[in-house]
Design a protein around this nucleic acid. Structure first.
Lengths: 229, 229
DNA sequence: CCGCATTTGTTCGTATGTATC
DNA sequence: GGATACATACGAACAAATGCG
């Protein structure tokens, strides 16, 4: 039996393994990696090799090293890191518009493909949004709101669309999060959620896209208002 | 006058400079970089430092090194490279759907923002498409077709949208290019181009989005047919 | 086919700066 | 402040691939 020769350099192999560990969430965002000595033993490579692999991942944006402290996980994919870097060169409004584009398409596709499980999940998150609104719990509202939208996009079944959307959402909310406040527009938002849900349930593609636009218009106004301050 | 301290490591600085040189097309895709010795002198860093910068860019997908031969430019942005890697894990159909999402949004925005120059350019490319079709020149048709669509997306004014769209288009056509043939559907395609152009001219957002869908349906059928073979 | 120059790949060693305890 | 561990940068020597005459 002939074994395939390992054409990948040691560094590349370590990089791949670390990438997978992060993608599989064995090492989560914010986690601190084990110290170099431990990793050397685990991967069975020299310190130089390990360090080089880590540097590659630092430049890719997945890891972050702090002198004297350690290395920690910063992002889950190089796509996310590249998007974040790119998004910084543009405005939040542009990111929002791209996110709108993705969600509109997702809503249209979800109208055709949604399963009963999808619908049930959407319903759950809508209810959570309502509860959070009544209890004036902003943080809970935002979390449920994000999950509601992500459920729609997941229902599209398009993995590339899902990944891009999730990254855009992360970028947006990492900026907007602290500037949110309970205000009358939230009631409108919940109303649009319900309408959007009904459209997807009825498999009405046109209306689904329209309600996405309505819903995101609110977020857009918040971003614009935020940028004026 | 207080000077800002250079917090960036030498490697990072070299990486940035090379990235800029590539982005500004001083080093174009396919070009061979000057040998390490020369670059060492130009950037005034040691070989190790330079090599580490190059390695980071190789991992990011912008450069490619060949022992004994040299280093050459592979891609113009890390976003593009990350997207390409990601897109390989999914299907062409998914890429096409995301591209459709972006172009629909772009068409809607272009309907509002298009300048007379934009319209003139679109017209030019439509004419080139017609000419190529009559002359049975497939390659010329595809090139003009791509340019027509890109012009619409550019007219949206959203740089993030433009970059993502361009990359998606590159990925798609690098797969589909060689499988195209002159067939009756091309006549339909030109017809949709004209309709789409008229909608943008009349600033009719709804129709513009619809015609994008019609137009891309043809491409979708081609991709599906191609994948069956 | 050989030999050679060019170019990148790999692995040492060393010096200095910097964060943490 | 001192000790320790890690980060950063440079230099040098040798290996391996490529291309040319």
């Amino acid at each position: 039996m002939i074994q395939k020769i390992n054409r990948m350099s040691l560094v590349e192999q370590v990089v791949e393994q670390i990438e997978q560990l992060i993608e599989q969430e064995k090492w989560k965002v914010g986690d601190k990696l084990p110290p170099e000595m431990e990793l050397m033993k685990k991967f069975d490579v020299s310190r130089n090799t390990l360090r080089e692999a880590i540097r590659a991942l630092v430049h890719a944006g997945l890891l972050e090293t702090k002198q004297g402290s350690g290395t920690l996980v910063r992002s889950t994919s190089s796509l996310g890191a590249a998007l974040k870097r790119h998004a910084k060169k543009t405005t939040m409004l542009e990111t929002l518009e791209v996110r709108l584009a993705l969600e509109k398409q997702a809503a249209q596709m979800a109208s055709q493909l949604r399963t009963n499980e999808d619908l049930a999940q959407m319903n759950t998150y809508i209810q959570k949004c309502k509860d959070a609104m009544n209890a004036n719990e902003m943080e809970q509202f935002i979390t449920s709101d994000i999950e509601f939208h992500k459920t729609i996009v997941r229902a599209s079944g398009n993995q590339l669309l899902i990944d891009l959307y999730d990254n855009m959402t992360d970028i947006l909310y990492s900026f907007v999060y602290n500037f949110m406040a309970i205000d009358p527009s939230i009631q409108l938002e919940v109303k649009f959620h319900t309408q959007l849900f009904e459209a997807i349930k009825k498999q009405d593609q046109q209306s689904a896209q329209m309600y996405v636009e309505n819903d995101m218009e609110i977020l857009k106004e918040r971003v614009v208002r935020m940028m004026e301050d």
